[in-house]
Amino acid sequence: MTRPAIEAEGLVKHFGDTVAVDGVSFVVPEGTVLGLLGPNGAGKTTTVRMMTTLTRPTSGTARVAGHDILHDPAAVRRSMGLTGQAATVDELLTGRENLRLIGRLYGLDPSYLTRASGELLERFSLSDAGDRIAKTYSGGMRRRLDLAVSLIATPPVLFLDEPTTGLDPRSRVELWEVLRELVKDGTTLLLTTQYLEEADQLADNIVVIDRGTVIAEGTPLQLKDQSGAAALVVTVSHPRDLEAAEALIRPHVREVHVDAGSRQLTAPAEGLGHMTRVAGIFDESGIVLDDIGLKRPSLDDVFLHLTGHRAEDGAQDGTQDDETATEQAGRITR
């Protein structure tokens, strides 16, 4: 473990009577990725906005690359890049002009800026589109440009607020690749996401927040372990066999849950031997199975376990953040 790149200390934000963030603390070691995971309206965006000096915390503070957000916001801004929830590229400028504008505002050396813009366009597969106005870009291209713009001054710390919201699966995987490259080069990443898979894929550590507070923290593995043992899942080929299958399995498991829609029986797993035994019983019974296997809990299950509600039904306690993501909320499924 190296020195922390980001430290949040009891961040609190009230909007009028609404408490959007209620005492969030965590530490992100240099060169690692923290996934800030939570449903819509959990306070992720507000937390990021406070840490990036866009919103003043009601109380608490944070340090980015060792600089306090309250006492030295200018130094914080020099040390970090931010890619917001909506791709904030200037639609009427070309990709290259977007990079140059932000680079110029950073006061970068002009010849460096020319070189760096070219390199970033190349790296984000935007070379061919670099001199077209951003209005003509696809969603994935805009996201990549937005990220490239955040990197023009090579900040050691990068904040990404739902970087893949609204992207198609292929663009998401591509963006993940780019982010992994960045981390390999030593950049510290904080990304918010409501995609459990995304946190699982990218993050070294995950902080789960719900209704403005941290409800769990740990590596993806630790979090999965928290929600208990794996499950034994049996899928029968014909719905008519479900009842017989349930009767057959019941004496051998502690409890069983039947889902007619997916033709699945789910029971707590008790090791490999147990699974083999159950498989043998079905073999003798003549009930045709599509599949039998062990399923490790996904982060989705973890979330359900921790919050008592699924990740997708969050948005009701409307803090003002995450508005734009609401329509995407339905996509979080396994």
Binding site: L105, A116, T154
Partner: peptide, 21 residues
């Protein structure tokens, strides 16, 4: 791992920044 090149960030002042915008 910090072999990565970090360019110098300069404060060019209000007028230069406003003009860029």
């Amino acid at each position: 791992m910090s072999t990565i090149e970090r360019p110098e960030i300069r404060d060019t002042g209000l007028l230069t920044q406003s003009w860029a915008i």
